[in-house]
Design a protein around this nucleic acid. Structure first.
Length: 285
DNA sequence: AGACAGGGGAGTG
DNA sequence: CACTCCCCTGTC
């Protein structure tokens, strides 16, 4: 068991904000699968306890070496985002393995979180290796090249995404993905979009959640609705314009802003009308 | 019961 | 740009 004090970190918000799918809550513990790791972690106040990985991994994976309060100060542009920052402070962008992140978000298209989870779980069970921790067993995420049976990919209920996953597995190696880190945002994004099944949204997820591009803004239907309402008087705006605005408005850490706004819209206002009411409430204050 | 859309993307026109 | 289809499943 490792223990450490943390500052500006909230385990629950970080794990449950939709950036990672292989998590399992059991009582006060989260069991987390990441690449070939399987560990458990809990948080009480400003102390985290973990088992299955070392402290160095935890610090890197949860970006604990980043100065979060400085990041939040940079994106704190108005009362809307401030509300979300106040509510979800401690949410950090995780540093995932790029390959696992890529396949996960290819799985995410036209799907919902329970289904995304079940697809990734099935892929891991079919192609990963068994791993156990304190008597609990699970599977590692298959390395590139291991997802080599198309029938089994289909059996993971991946549907029309099966061919994308199978193709990526045959054509990519992890070095290609990691080399994107040193490229410009635009170049890295264009490279990712060459992969079948990867468009703007999925590319931005991979850039933000695994390659350290904090300016990436994944524009999904929720962020689109939320930003149209808050910043465009509810007009219909193209995803590209929303991205441009977001980067210009929030700056270098626009991806963080996106994630905080996403939590707000997903958890606190399940419908557009509630979002509208919330905005009106804010205007009255 | 049966349509319908869900954290998209590719392929057309 | 604006469509349509893609596979599957929970939801109304």
């Amino acid at each position: 068991m490792g223990k450490m004090k943390v500052k500006d970190f909230n385990l629950e918000y970080t794990l449950e904000c939709g950036q990672i799918f292989r998590i399992n809550r059991v009582d006060s513990w989260y069991y987390v699968n990441a690449q070939d790791k399987f560990f458990k972690i809990n948080q009480v106040g400003n102390e985290i306890t973990f088992h299955g990985v070392d402290k160095e991994f935890i610090i890197h994976f949860f970006s604990l070496n980043e100065n979060l309060s400085k990041i939040l100060k940079e994106i704190d542009k108005d009362k809307y985002i401030r509300k979300s920052i106040d509510r979800y402070r401690g949410l950090r962008i995780i540093k995932q393995d790029p390959w696992e992140c890529l396949i996960s978000f290819i799985c995410s298209s036209a799907s919902n979180i329970p289904r995304i989870k079940s697809k990734i779980k099935a892929l891991s069970e079919s192609f990963g290796n068994k791993i156990s921790l304190d008597g609990v067993s699970d599977y590692t995420f298959p390395a590139p090249g291991k997802i080599n049976d198309y029938k089994k990919v289909l059996n993971a209920k991946t549907g029309f995404r099966a061919k994308y996953i199978f193709e990526a597995n045959n054509s990519l190696n992890i070095k290609n993905l990691n080399s994107l880190r040193t490229q410009s945002y635009n170049n890295a994004k264009n490279e990712l979009k060459k992969i079948n099944g990867v468009g703007d949204k999925v590319a931005d997820c991979v850039l933000l959640f695994s390659l350290g591009f904090y300016q990436a803004i994944p524009v999904d239907t929720w962020i689109k609705k939320t930003m149209q309402l808050l910043y465009f008087d509810n007009a219909t705006i193209s995803n590209e314009k929303i991205r441009e605005f977001g980067l210009d408005y929030f700056g270098t850490y626009a991806g963080y802003a996106q994630q905080y706004l996403f939590m707000l819209s997903r958890n606190d206002m399940g419908t557009t009308s509630r979002l509208q009411l919330w905005k009106n409430g804010m205007l009255e204050e």
